[in-house]
Design a binder for these strands. Structure first.
Lengths: 247, 247
DNA sequence: CACGGTAAGTGGTCTATACAACATACTCAA
DNA sequence: TTGAGTATGTTGTATAGACCACTTACCGTG
């Protein structure tokens, strides 16, 4: 995509945003570079200034660009959250620990959202969500059970996908065009119930780590609500805290 | 501020945004409520729709509101996460959850560092560290046991301090001049041993959350190594994750 | 050379308008 | 009663233009 298609179903500002993102990813525009001014972009792509601004503003919100009044718009350094905790799926997480991740899909189906899920995903109760239940293994040993609920335009298509041999997060980002931006996560200690214990091959009453995560795409739109159960003896969660805070 | 001042130095959209934020904070508009439509706000405050939209869009980006096309704009559920990636001590943490923190000092003394502690604090084995063992309560109920090891120039002075009625982190920052910058923390689920269970007034074998934290002052100098045990049924840890890549 | 003013270029704010896309409630006919 | 269509109200997208605030470079004057 390098030109604007005016009769496309995609909004013009979105097309421009993706064109710009492409130039940044391809290093045509490098970190620190000044990007063309709003008025230049208007002329180049035959768009009104407000439309161009919307494209740029969204890139700024995502931390891809930054602006300085009177100077211009620039490509941000690529460092967004080095020190904050990275949002990773199980696959990436386990790989970064030097282990080999694998997966058994326990169930994958469309189902109506229950009350809790609907609230988290900000949809109506009973709206269809894609429910995915997977046993996650590290080095062949069961490590966690992950119960995901996904809701977005076109999430039904996930039923067709092979989710045993590819990362769900990667699929969302590349195939579905859902960029994952951030997530809120809760962690809690608990005891394994009989079913979970059997799946994880531990004794009932063993220590487990419960996590609940809401993953957001752009504009703070929730797309995934996932509840997981990790073996307490095999999994440690790392986080990094900073004293300074915005606000 | 409850009216728009047109000759103010503050942008109109900003004034409107703060008016709306005020109504949300004061609970005039509660989570889940629909806020007035764009056109209503235009009429009420005599602003153009784009100006109103900018105010709303910023609140959406901050996660204060969310919008649904064709339905309206709504107040989002209170987000706990925003402030909880912050490095906080127990006192601040519990206060921000709306509970009352209190403390029983179990022991406070200078002692030689054991191997594990010495490694974390980057000092020699046997060097003196200040060891502080405290039972932490929320609303009068035992919530956690915290075992801190501190090492810095002048840490002996802590023996004299009243650590039952004041925050350790506050003392470090104000009295000792040790600015706390960041921390690495690990979390793990486990089962309560008999001693810890007795202190926390739970049954042995109950679920507990183990945390280990290394707190750094400037120049990445470690000053505290703390191991804590939290009641699993009373404590949830919140964190916020950000995606690193720009996809 | 130093300084101040100016012009040009940038993003920031704001208005007014139009139509599209979507959700919901209502009406009316089968 | 049920269903399709419609009216209305919502947000989403897009345009064109205006003026403001800020930054920078240039130019002329002292």
């Amino acid at each position: 995509m390098s030109v604007i298609i005016r009769r496309s179903a995609l909004p013009l500002y979105y097309q421009l945003k993706e064109i710009m993102r492409g130039k940044i990813l391809s290093e045509e525009w490098k970190p620190g570079d000044q990007v063309p001014s709003e008025r230049e972009l208007c002329a180049t792509y035959k768009l009104s200034r407000m439309t161009v601004r919307q494209a740029i503003m969204e890139l700024v919100n995502e931390g891809v660009c930054y602006r300085e009044q009177g100077r211009g718009t620039f490509v941000a350094q690529r460092k967004i959250a080095q020190q904050l905790v990275r949002l990773t799926g199980f696959t990436e997480d386990i790989r970064s620990r030097g282990q080999v991740p694998s997966t058994q899909v326990l169930s994958a189906q469309l189902a109506p959202a229950d009350e809790m899920t609907a609230e988290r995903l900000r949809i109506g109760v009973g709206q269809p969500v894609f429910r995915l239940e997977r046993l996650r293994l590290a080095d062949g040993e069961p490590l966690a059970i992950e119960r995901s609920h996904l809701s977005f335009e076109g999430c039904e298509a996930l039923v067709e996908e092979d989710l045993e041999h590819s990362s769900l997060y990667r699929q969302l980002e590349s195939k579905c065009g859902i960029p994952l931006i951030e997530a809120d996560q809760e962690l809690e200690a608990g005891l394994a119930g009989p079913e979970d214990a059997a799946l994880l091959r531990i004794a009932p009453g063993s220590a487990v780590l419960y996590t609940r995560r809401i993953t957001f795409t752009d504009r703070n739109q929730p797309v995934e609500y996932a509840r997981s159960v990790y073996r307490g003896d095999k999994y440690t969660f790392f986080t990094h805290l900073k004293r300074e805070e915005i606000f």
